[in-house]
């Protein structure tokens, strides 16, 4: 039905326009390919410029000012906000925690995801329904996942400690303060994130595994290579591009984590789970210091870009994959 129907109501004017364009283009080929491509990209580019570019410019401009939103004052502060951010233990701590959180999430997801993908691959078609089941956490809102895990881990009535106690793994329901012990809380708040997206890792890696030609693995086996050796020397190098994409994508997402943590601990206890997103949000909207928050946001963005580019350059290595 989607095919052009010139008799569509309201279509007449446009139809005329169509003819006009044909006439204009046919003789001299009209737009060059370059221009045509540009015209196709233009709407999306304009959209992103307005709704992402402009706010980013605003962010960077604001980062150079001392702003008191309620008093309505705005004074140029040069790089003062950057100085303040870079010398504040809160910002540096949050930056460290963001890095740690990202590492934690990505490492665990990758390890678990790879294990599951290898399992799927070993079991073949019969594991299909399980692959379907694995999909479901991906669809759940991070807010819901955060609440759910908070509910599972919460002190006094969390089911996880209760079950661990009954299984005899821990001494009592109060043995682990998942969300109240500052030493482990960063790990605990990462659990929903890991739970939500390990499936993503698993499915992407599984697809990558399926694309590895069987004869390559067979050759390795015939060469007398053990399973571990095959995995580290043959399979993983072949998966490199897939792994790179998956790690970069997940790393970016994990570094921006906001709602899962907000809903679980709101950054506590003792700020032990306060990541940069939370700190910036707080500084911006709760403490009313948009200038400082913008400087933090800008630094955060620069760091993300830097790390992502390095990651892409070192592990992606586009082009021919080494055997």
């Amino acid at each position: 039905m989607g095919r052009a129907d010139p008799r569509l109501p309201g279509g007449d004017v446009r139809a005329g326009d169509d003819h006009l364009r044909h006439r204009r283009r046919r003789p001299g080929r009209g737009l060059t390919d370059d221009r045509f491509a540009l015209a196709l990209m233009a709407p999306a580019a304009v959209f992103l410029a307005v709704f992402v570019g402009w706010p980013l410019v605003k962010l960077i401009v604001d980062s150079l000012y001392d702003i008191a939103p309620l008093a309505g004052t705005r004074e140029f502060a040069g790089l003062g906000n950057y100085g303040e951010a870079l010398t504040s233990p809160g910002f540096l701590g949050a930056a460290g925690r963001t890095a740690l959180y990202t590492m934690l999430v990505v490492t665990l997801e990758f390890t678990l995801g790879l294990a599951v993908a290898l399992l799927f691959n070993a079991l073949g078609r019969r594991a299909r329904w399980i692959r379907t089941l694995f999909l479901y956490p991906l669809m759940i809102a991070p807010v819901v996942a955060g609440l759910l895990w908070r509910f599972l881990l919460i002190d006094n009535f969390g089911i996880v400690n209760e079950l661990l106690t009954r299984l005899g793994i821990i001494g009592g329901p109060d043995a682990i303060g998942w969300l109240s012990d500052p030493d482990i809380v960063l790990f605990s708040v990462a659990l929903p994130d890991i739970w939500l997206t390990t499936s993503f890792m698993a499915l992407v890696l599984f697809a990558g595994l399926q694309n590895i030609p069987g004869d390559v693995l067979e050759a390795a086996r015939l060469d007398g290579s053990g399973p571990w050796h095959t995995l580290t020397r043959v399979t993983l190098p072949l998966l490199r591009p897939v792994i790179a994409v998956a790690l970069v994508v997940r790393g970016i997402d994990a570094a921006r984590a906001f709602d899962v943590i907000l809903i679980q601990t709101n950054g506590g206890p003792q700020s032990a789970s306060e990541t940069l997103s939370l700190l910036i949000y707080r500084t911006m909207v709760r403490f009313g210091e948009p200038g400082l928050a913008s400087a933090m946001g800008t630094l955060y963005l620069i760091a993300m870009l830097g790390v992502a580019l390095i990651a892409v350059a070192t592990i992606w290595r586009p082009g021919k994959v080494v055997r």
């Binding site: 540009l38 990209m41 962010l59 997103s277 963005l301 870009l305 992502a308």
Partner: peptide, 27 residues
């Protein structure tokens, strides 16, 4: 069309993905 503008655009779109929502939220 594999044009230069296209490659630049892809890069910029990728950068967009790295922007922390919290940074652009208030603007």
């Amino acid at each position: 069309y594999g044009t230069a503008s296209g490659r630049i655009f892809v890069m910029l779109a990728l950068v967009t993905r790295m922007v922390p929502p919290v940074a652009v939220g208030v603007p």
